[in-house]
Amino acid sequence: MTYPFEINSAAVQDALAHVADDNNRVTIDPETVEQDLARLVLGLMEFLRQLMELQAIRQMDNGALTDIQEEKLGSTLMRAEAAIHDIAAKFGLTPADLSLDLGPLGKTI
């Protein structure tokens, strides 16, 4: 399988827009400043983590990984996800608050 190099930048921007409200504004309220900043930063972290997960799956598809590499990648990405979710929970954010639609994007990388 070959994957095109072109990036669907609209999809990336849409994905990032998930951390913003409907006016593309990340509104940082004095009352909820911690939560608002956490949503922005954790949303980006989760976005990058999901990209790495997709890339790992792609390399598995290509048969490029040894069992040991799969174990290391798997446990690292699993712990990264758990850590992001833990931090998110401390700020009262659910995984859905950070969720991104990487479906179509995953195919364009």
């Binding site: 990336v12 921007q13 849409d14 006016n23 504004r25 990388i109």
Partner: peptide
């Protein structure tokens, strides 16, 4: 209107992010 992101405090737009990303394998 999309493709742009504003950081806003107390209805004041403080920072504009025009994000262009290059992602590649």
């Amino acid at each position: 209107i999309r493709g742009e992101l504003w950081l806003t405090v107390a209805d004041v737009d403080l920072v504009f992010l025009g994000i262009d990303l290059l992602l590649a394998a």
